[in-house]
């Protein structure tokens, strides 16, 4: 069924993004391969969003290189991103998904219903997307991101402004998606969420990769001072 995972692995080599006098991402080397979700953690301004955007191919690097499945020029057909504040097109919920399907040859109506059901929005397809609640919009955006059957899905603080019930709904979908073989790379502020979902954890601080390892090791035996402090809930400044 699934086409070869052409976009995997995503390999960042010495990825650096400089904006003006500020180095947002500082020489990050990281390989994102098929498997359990990778969770990016770190304080505000650590570079989580920029790392996700760069890995999606949206933010060009100042130095370093990114390859998708070994290619540096892979178009983003098999990767998708869910922004922290996704933009709902001024159309119905179903039309938002249809829009993402627009560039593919998949059969429409069935696929739209399947995706709406996957995110628990059955029957809401005809509602204007902008009239949905915050949690519903986030789930619709997730369905839209999944419409083109991505090999890798980036999520940027996707539950940051949601209540626990809406957060659980999103986490359940992420788990289901990951179980179906989609590589999930997500950033979060929520250490509990990182424990619940993370297969491996990446700790970023001031644009640098501090520590990267399996979630169990990371939480039980953090190697760096920064990781120990961050896990203990101390302020990392």
């Amino acid at each position: 069924m699934r086409a070869p995972l052409a976009d995997l692995p995503v390999v960042l080599a010495n990825a650096t993004v400089v904006a003006g006098a500020v180095t947002i991402l500082d020489g990050v080397s990281l390989s994102l391969d098929a498997g359990t979700p990778t969770v990016l953690i770190g304080p505000n301004g650590a570079g989580k969003t920029t790392l996700l955007r760069a890995a999606m191919g949206l933010t060009p690097l100042t130095h370093g290189e990114i390859t998708w499945g070994g290619r540096a020029d892979a178009p983003p057909t098999r990767r998708a991103i869910l922004f922290q504040r996704p933009v709902m097109l001024r159309r119905s919920a179903a039309a938002n998904i249809d829009y993402a399907l627009g560039m593919t040859n998949m059969p429409r109506a069935e696929r739209i219903d399947e995706l709406l059901a996957l995110v628990g929005l059955e029957g809401l397809g005809r509602r204007p997307a902008r009239r949905l609640s915050g949690g519903e919009q986030q789930r619709l955006a997730l369905a839209r991101a999944l419409a083109r059957d991505p090999a890798i899905l980036f999520l940027d603080e996707s539950t940051a402004s949601l209540d626990p019930a809406a957060t659980k709904a999103i986490e359940d979908i992420i788990r289901a998606v990951a179980a179906r073989g989609v590589k999930v790379v997500m950033s979060t502020h929520d250490l509990g969420q990182a424990r619940r979902l993370g297969g491996d954890i990446v700790l970023l601080h001031r644009g640098r990769l501090i520590e990267h390892g399996p979630a169990m090791d990371f939480f039980d035996n953090p190697r760096s001072d920064e990781a120990r402090k961050f896990i203990a809930g101390e302020l990392l400044v």
Binding site: M56, L58, P75, P76, T77, A80, I81, F83, P86, V87, L89, Y99, A100, G102, M103
Partner: peptide, 16 residues
């Protein structure tokens, strides 16, 4: 300015 990122992520061309 609102749609830019989302359309770039969906790889929408100039005419689209």
């Amino acid at each position: 300015s609102e749609y830019r990122d989302e359309l770039a992520a969906l790889d929408v061309g100039p005419i689209g």
